[in-house]
Design a protein around this nucleic acid. Structure first.
Lengths: 140, 140
DNA sequence: TGCCTGAAACTACAAGTGTAGTCGGAAAAC
DNA sequence: GTTTTCCGACTACACTTGTAGTTTCAGGCA
């Protein structure tokens, strides 16, 4: 049990101004997701969890875990010569960061056009629509 | 299955499942955006349009234009030894692709949680909220 | 006619990513 | 106590991306 010095500089890109979190790549996100859903997990448990979703070789997944550790978004504990990994950053926090980044990059930060765009393209059930309207109401 | 090699052509990455459109990088997106806002434009006109938004050197922007051409998302016409560039793909189409990709990657394709997440984090004016509710109504 | 200029083409290069393979050493099995 | 087996550590390598610099060549200018 060690590691996890938040607030480092190298490996942090321009976009993360203010935020302390390095960018997480697509493949890394996938790995991190399984840790969010349940942690701690050993590397092999992560591999197993991803077996249905990807066809990555175990080494690939271990590399990704290592990179996540290096980015300080995942920590680990050694027990009996085997590592157990766990997230160091909350899912909510990361979602927010991804949200903002996407919104900025694709819609120049304009929320409503983005929402409109999604509402036009994707499908929702009647209940979901009701729930969203309720959510919008509560925001006034 | 997230990532299988699904017949990927060179210069086309995993995300372009099925679609023929290559991934557009962040910087490329910026360039493409100015072409969406007005086209055709010469390289220098694009450079000028981006001068306020970025501090990229002209060569950088020309490289990005060239890459967009190579990815078949931008075309050009030569007139009097100068190229005029224009988009070959519609903004709407690209937005849809980005939307879907983001939704899939970050929210596993679940639209409502994504919307909820945005609504929780970001701010909207009263009118925007009204407009969104109207949009939700029209969707039944 | 030869030179300068400006545009496109070509080259560069480090960091990050996807995607593993190989090495070295401890622990388990004989 | 050797051998085998795992596991993490280290190495690999091509492709993409950000971010330009350098070369070349046609056309205009002197």
């Amino acid at each position: 049990m060690l590691n996890a010095e938040r607030g480092k500089e190298p490996g942090m890109n321009n976009r993360s101004k203010g935020s302390k979190v390095s960018r997480i790549s697509e493949a890394e996100w996938e790995v991190l997701s399984v840790l969010w859903s349940k942690a701690p997990r050993t590397a092999n448990e992560v591999v197993e969890a991803l077996a249905d979703l990807t066809d990555w070789k175990p080494n690939t997944i271990k590399t990704l875990l290592t990179r996540l550790v290096k980015k300080n978004v995942v920590g680990f504990r050694e027990e009996k010569r085997v590592y157990s990994y766990f997230p160091l950053v909350g899912r909510e926090e990361c979602l927010r960061a991804e949200n903002r980044f996407f919104l900025e990059r694709v819609y120049g930060g304009a929320l409503k056009p983005m929402l409109v765009s999604f509402l036009k393209d994707e499908t929702l059930t009647a209940e979901e629509i009701e729930e969203l309207k309720r959510l919008l109401d509560r925001r006034d």
